[in-house]
Amino acid sequence: DKATNPSNRQEDWEYIIGFCDQINKELEGPQIAVRLLAHKIQSPQEWEAVQALTVLEACMKNCGRRFHNEVGKFRFLNELIKVVSPKYLGDRISEKVKTKVIELLYSWTVALPEESKIKDAYYMLKRQGIVMF
């Protein structure tokens, strides 16, 4: 909550890194973290969602393969798909948030080719015309 607080005036890296550290300390850290992050990323408040995406990106860089495995499941990827798809939340989410979600998905298809479900999700969005470029 502190790392994504809408009243933060800027991204608070103390709390963001604290969140990453907590994931690394706990056995079920990655599973719990992706559920919390999915909820924040779907926030109708743009700034809360943007901060959640920054936290997600920080976790991908700092929390290793256990976290990658969890992000690389359709269970989490479907929550990101809901954000960009007009059939789900897409019409209510800002372009800034949707663009960032697509940029993150693309970056992981390149950086984490072994997480094949990320590619499946990204190319499905391309086929459906949700990712245009």
Partner: peptide, 15 residues
């Protein structure tokens, strides 16, 4: 509850 060794997943959503 989800456990550390739980590799279960759901299907990819269709948009």
């Amino acid at each position: 509850t989800v456990s550390f060794h739980d590799d279960s997943d759901e299907d990819l959503l269709n948009v």
